[in-house]
Design a protein around this nucleic acid. Structure first.
Length: 425
RNA sequence: GGAGAAGUCGCAUAGUGGCCUAGUGCACCUGCUUGGAGAGCAGGAGUAGCCUUACGGCUACCCAGGGUUCGAAUCCCUGCUUCUCCGCCA
């Protein structure tokens, strides 16, 4: 969320940001609510001050054995009046919060203004999209031929949009997770975290999934808990309601979690294979940093994610999202897309974002410097490093050979007992 | 799942309806003192919001949310968390 004072003083900037992000926002309506709010608060606080004074007086009178009967009667009336105004305050607060929690973060000034994907900019390409000298098969075909993926049985167990990995398929998944976690913890300086996969409402609000995206989340029926759509939620909320010490920063965390997404509203899209599944594994990178370093930290985070893909000998491109494609909480975001020659698509496997102080303000994450200054909000960032399922698509489709086998990239072989190829039977 | 106990200012504690807008100790910051440090002495410190050009004032916050009362850290209800015991278990 944004600073309320900032919204009050810069309504035009907020209006423009919302427009650039394609978010409908009634800023003028908010300014009216805000004005009403301050008037109500002034009124009710004056009455409360009076009440406090008189209550004190009653206490003293009783001690002196005087009879404060009349004062008590008048205070009874005053309390009722206060209750009435407080009901109005409560109603106003609800509207106030509704608005504030639905204001998107401001895009960074370097972010291109545009409506959607067509306005995104390719920052760089890495590697040449591999050309096979045979007709490239899709990962669905490859996986089923090798008996390492079974979508039919996954549907039987859970429904469409789920995957079942088997034998070396399951082993490949585990190898990738271990490889990525090792890389980030040993080479990139991240601390490994293994968080809960169910989180409470507060955490979902903290990182910005709620209130906007509730219908995209899996929610438990009997408890106010949600299945995490990404490790970003539990990991960023590790420091919710904390004041960190300046010299603890920057904090780098990496976490493997499964991720759960309803994908409501995308029915009929990418129904085959691993492209869009309700449950997938991901290694996430999360940072807590000082405000002045956050955009440099974003570049580093992006590079850390790219390293994974380079090591796996896949080609990719980095996209800088335009304002219209930027998520609610992000001020700047890069996507990494892999080329999948079988399904002939670019696949998003990582989204690296700077959220500036937007999440920190919601989750109340501050830091304090030695100089005795007031605590300030940290900046938070995160990015996938990287998402599986789609990564597996690329590995199968890029490293397939004419006879239907799949070569294992060298970096992964130590995690596969030295195996260098998944052979067809 | 059942029974019981507890959650107070960074930490430790005091506080069982008005003297608590929370006392004390430790830690912290600023002075004084000192060659310098320590000790000692004096003072100051939280978060959020509202009002004010400013100095400053006010409101709220004793796990959270409700309630009783003229008045709640204190009484009542619900929830959360922690601890102890029992049950059930990977």
């Amino acid at each position: 969320m944004l600073d309320v004072k900032f919204i009050r003083e810069n309504p035009d900037i907020v209006k423009k940001a919302a427009k650039d992000k394609n978010v409908k926002l009634d800023v003028d309506g908010f300014l009216r609510i805000d004005k009403e709010r301050r008037e109500l608060l002034k009124e009710v606080e004056t009455l409360k001050a009076e009440k406090n004074k008189v209550s004190d007086k009653i206490g003293k009178m009783m001690k002196e054995r005087a009879n404060p009967k009349e004062l008590i009667a008048s205070m009874k009336a005053a309390s009722q009046k206060i209750a009435k105004i407080e009901a109005k305050v409560e109603e106003n607060t609800k509207k106030f919060k509704d608005f504030v929690y639905n204001v998107p973060n401001l895009p960074h000034k370097s972010v291109k203004i545009g409506l959607g994907t067509e306005a995104n900019r390719v920052v760089r390409d890495w590697g040449k999209p591999l050309k096979h000298d045979f007709e490239a098969k899709t990962h669905v075909k490859i996986g089923e031929n090798l008996n390492i993926l079974d979508f039919g049985r996954a549907a039987k167990i859970s429904g469409t949009g789920f995957a079942l990995y088997k034998g070396l398929g399951a082993r490949l998944e585990r190898a990738l997770l271990n490889f990525m976690l090792d890389l980030h913890t040993k080479k990139h300086g991240y601390t490994e975290i293994f968080p809960p996969f169910l989180v409470n409402r507060r955490s979902m609000i903290g990182t910005g999934q709620l209130p906007k995206l509730e219908e995209d989340m899996y929610k438990l029926k009997d408890d106010d808990l949600f299945l995490i759509p990404t490790a970003e939620v539990p990991v960023t909320n590790i420091h919710a309601n904390e004041v960190l010490d300046e010299n603890e920063l920057p904090i780098y965390y990496t976490a493997y979690t499964a991720c759960f997404r309803r994908e409501a509203g995308s029915y009929g899209k990418d129904t085959k294979g691993l492209t869009r599944v309700h449950q997938f594994n991901k290694v996430e990178l999360v940072k807590f940093v000082k405000p002045e370093t956050s955009y440099d930290e974003l570049e580093k985070l992006l590079n850390n994610a790219e390293t994974v893909i380079q090591a796996l000998e896949l080609s990719y491109r980095v996209i800088e999202l335009c304002t219209g494609d930027l998520s609610f909480a992000a001020s700047k975001c890069y996507d990494i897309e892999l080329w999948a020659p079988g399904i002939k698509k670019w696949l998003e496997v990582s989204s690296c974002s700077n959220f500036t102080d937007f999440q920190a303000r919601r989750a109340n994450i501050k830091f304090k410097s030695k100089g005795g200054k007031k605590p300030e909000y940290v900046h938070t960032l995160n990015g996938s490093g990287v998402a599986l399922a789609r990564l597996v698509i690329a590995i199968l489709e890029v490293h397939q050979t004419k006879d239907g086998s799949v070569n294992i990239p060298e970096a992964l072989r130590p995690y596969m007992d030295g195996l260098n190829v998944i052979k067809s039977a």
